[in-house]
Amino acid sequence: MDYSLLIFIQIIIGLFFSILFLQSGLDKVLNYRDNKSYIDSVFEKTFLKSFSPLLFIGILLLETAAGILCSTGSIYYLLTQESIMLVIGLQLSVISLVCLFLGQRIAKDYAGAAGLVPYLILGVFGIYLFGQAG
């Protein structure tokens, strides 16, 4: 594969996840009450009910960190060819998706969980591309 094409694909995947998680994190901050109420209702009938406030803050921080690292990492990688920040951002993205997937499965939102699978595949593929480049 042409090295410049590989870099382009890696950066596009990073930018995709930066948009995904920065928007999601920002939405959770700007619409905190509505989002927290939604999370509380999702876990209302599960063993995670009492942990839902902590889970909400945790996923907010994880998503926001993933988005920030993917966005700054994409730009930094484009300018310097140093990929560590972007790789960590992609790894946090995948961890965020696995956490969301687990929560949706526990809440029995099987359709929502299934909807995360393409994102997870893309994130793992992005990480894989960095392994192949080095």
Rank of each mutant, 00 (worst) to 15 (best):
F16V: 14
S50T: 13
V117Q: 06
N35G: 04
A111I: 08
T46L: 08
G115E: 06
G123Q: 05
Y3C: 15
I7E: 15
G123D: 06
G67E: 08
G67F: 02
L55W: 06
G103W: 00
A114Y: 06
A133T: 05
L22D: 14
L120H: 01
V29A: 09
Y128S: 10
P118R: 01
N31Q: 09
P53M: 10
V124C: 10
R105M: 11
F8L: 15
D109V: 04
G112Q: 01
S83F: 12
T46F: 07
I121R: 01
R105N: 08
V124E: 12
L6F: 09
E82Y: 07
G25M: 12
I121E: 05
I59Q: 11
I127P: 00
V117A: 07
I95V: 09
A107Y: 10
A65S: 09
G112R: 00
S41H: 11
L54E: 07
G89M: 03
L120K: 04
G134L: 15
G14E: 13
S41R: 14
Q132C: 05
T64D: 08
Y110T: 02
S52D: 13
C99T: 10
E63Y: 04
S18K: 11
K36C: 00
S83A: 10
L26W: 08
I106N: 03
Y3I: 15
L69G: 01
S24M: 12
V29N: 04
